[in-house]
């Protein structure tokens, strides 16, 4: 079976800093992979490279077996329709009411009639546990947890084949984080999508993933099923999942 997403030797450098140094990754259709790793290890850069927001310096990115590394502009549009993304801060458009945020991809991206798109938006909002009342509020009037939910509703509005989650639980209290985790699992299953998430929240990673990959030093240093993470035998992974300051990973505190 062809992998839904495949990265082959992806490299990306910013100035003197080699952020990605040959990332190889494969995600099977319908599975959920979580990339874990410390801050600044290139997790976001990996997702943004797949999305085409950043262009890798070297290597190839395949979606459904098709090389999409250098697709840009109009030729990229059909590919972008396969994607949905939940941003770390929600990234809701604050000039638009909640329902228009959710319906944005349908109206602007696919030219759907506003009335139809609005009905879909309201049904997607109910899927993430938000009432129709919320649909008419502005994003600034929502709490952090509600903004995440609206972001989730927006990500799944167009029934994408692949959904990306960028630190879905960051900035939320533990209970709300768990609610969001449950919602992610439920919605991904509901849409039947492949999911790629990045996080450093291990509770979230365990809950929403089938497989886990760890990014360190610009490469994937371990990858395996989620239930194997505690028996990885990899000292880097052990240090990270237990959150120890002492270990092979040296934090660049003295920079």
């Amino acid at each position: 079976m062809t992998a839904k997403i495949q990265l082959i030797g992806v490299k990306k450098r910013f100035g003197a800093k080699q952020v990605l140094d040959g990332v190889d990754l494969e995600i099977a259709p319908g599975t959920s992979l979580v990339i874990i790793g410390g801050s600044g290890t290139g997790k976001s850069v990996t997702i943004k490279s797949i999305l085409g927001i950043l262009a890798p310096d070297e290597g190839r990115i395949l979606v459904d077996g098709e090389d999409v590394t250098h697709l840009r502009g109009r030729t990229r549009e059909p590919l972008m329709r396969k994607f949905g993304m939940l941003f770390q801060g929600g990234a809701l458009f604050d000039s638009l009411p909640v329902w228009e945020n959710v319906a944005f991809g349908l109206i602007q991206g696919r030219g759907m009639a506003r009335a139809t798109a609005k009905d879909i938006a309201i049904s997607k909002l109910s899927k993430v546990g938000l009432s129709e009342y919320v649909a008419y509020l502005s994003p600034a009037e929502l709490s952090g947890g509600m903004q995440k939910r609206v972001g989730l509703a927006r990500a799944i509005a167009a029934d994408p084949e692949i959904i990306f989650f960028d630190e879905p639980t960051t900035g939320l209290d533990p209970i709300m984080a768990d609610v969001i985790n449950d919602l992610i699992v439920a919605t991904v299953k509901d849409v039947g999508a492949t999911a790629l998430s990045i996080t450093h929240d291990m509770a979230s990673a365990r809950k929403i993933s089938d497989n886990i990959a760890m990014l360190y030093g610009g490469r994937i240093i371990w990858q395996g099923p989620t239930d194997q993470i505690d028996h990885s035998g990899n000292p880097y992974v052990d240090q990270f999942i237990h959150g120890r300051a002492e270990g092979p990973i040296k934090m660049a505190v003295r920079k």
Partner: peptide, 12 residues
Amino acid sequence: TEQIDALTTLST
């Protein structure tokens, strides 16, 4: 706040 990136992911 990544809203411009969000536009890109929404095919805009």
